[in-house]
């Protein structure tokens, strides 16, 4: 799966009056990504390959084309990224890291492939769970990304996301993790990367996600945070990530999913947001860009489509706002 930008450019032709989602174009765009080995960008983005596969696969499932990528090839690739330690790297030969381990687990969950994992890697689930659990800092409750100890609420969320899908949350100190999330809260109701850091929509998503997974939304000042999140919507309908910043399609996900976790999607104008997202797609070559007229890529493609799914755009499968995965998948994994 390549993360190479383009070839398309978002919103370059005038869309018909009634805004449409170009499903088939997006499907072929995602299918074409791994064929671009003659572009330098393909090689320069190898460190995102497993994330890219998760983004592409999730987009395809939401678009109603779950079989558009060959299942066995995807499973083979995912397992080829797994290390002895139980962690996953971005691609074969890349070091293990939380970010890719989470993507690996999400892909296996989406493909209902935990049994394939067990069949091919002895105690596979347990090993992945242990790799993640060992990255928790017993002092603060937060998580490191890998052995080099960078810490961030992104990794804490990722850990809880993957462990809950694997049914292994008991391997970590959940209360300590929740305490850490609490320590990242700010007066505006939002959360930062670490205690003292400025509220940021991406971090709000990770912290709210962590609190939802652990059943601790009671700790959130919902009105205050909902208000802050709703102010991310700008006149053109798009959402930004912090006060006085520009809109970007990826925040259609970070902000909207957070509002969904708070049951406050109706606090912004969904119609205007949907129209903004749709203006960022390339109607000819497929894919979504951050803003109309920019290069498309698979990262903005999945978050644009997932945002549309939260807005109940017709024809899309329901997305889980906590996991950014099809709701049927998380229901199955979480036994709901």
């Amino acid at each position: 799966m390549s993360l190479v930008s383009g070839p398309g450019r978002g919103g370059m032709t005038d869309l018909p009056e009634e805004l449409r989602l170009f499903v088939d174009k997006h499907v072929s765009y995602i299918q074409s990504l791994d064929t671009r080995k003659d572009e330098l960008e393909y090689w320069l983005t190898e460190h995102l390959r497993l994330n890219g596969l998760y983004w592409g696969l999730t987009a395809l499932h939401l678009l109603g084309h779950p079989d558009a990528l060959p299942r066995h090839e995807v499973v083979d690739f995912v397992l080829s990224c797994m290390h002895e330690s139980g962690g996953f790297g971005a691609a074969p030969g890349h070091d293990a890291h939380m970010l890719y381990t989470v993507s690996g687990v999400q892909i296996l969950a989406t493909l209902d492939a935990f049994d394939d994992l067990e069949a091919r890697v002895k105690s596979g689930r347990q090993r992945i769970g242990q790799y993640i659990a060992d990255l928790q800092d017993p002092e603060s409750g937060t998580f490191a990304g890998d052995e080099w100890q960078e810490k961030d609420t992104r990794f804490l969320y990722g850990a809880l996301n993957a462990l809950s899908l694997l049914g292994l949350l008991h391997l970590v100190n959940v209360d300590k993790a929740v305490e850490h999330v609490q320590s990242c809260a700010n007066f505006d109701g939002g959360y930062g990367t670490s205690p003292g850091a400025e509220s940021h929509a991406g971090q709000v998503f990770t912290c709210l996600g962590a609190l939802t997974i652990t059943g601790r939304l009671d700790l959130v000042d919902k009105d205050k945070l909902g208000a802050w999140l709703s102010e991310r919507q700008l006149k053109n309908g798009g959402l930004n990530g912090r006060p006085e910043k520009k809109e970007d399609v990826c925040y259609s996900w970070w902000v909207l999913s957070s509002l969904a976790m708070l049951n406050k999607v109706h606090w912004i104008d969904g119609k205007k947001l949907a129209s903004f997202i749709l203006h960022c797609q390339d109607p000819e070559l497929g894919g979504f860009a951050d803003r109309p007229g920019d290069m498309v890529d698979v990262f903005h493609t999945v978050f644009g489509i997932a945002g549309l799914s939260l807005l109940k755009f017709p024809g899309l499968a329901e997305v889980d706002p906590v996991y950014c995965m099809p709701r049927v998948v998380t229901k199955r994994c979480l036994g709901q």
């Binding site: 007229g293 920019d294 290069m295």
Partner: peptide, 14 residues
């Protein structure tokens, strides 16, 4: 990460 704010100038397929 992905391409943020990069305006496309020419079609790379050609």
């Amino acid at each position: 990460m992905a391409s943020h704010g990069i305006t496309r100038v020419a079609d790379s397929t050609v």
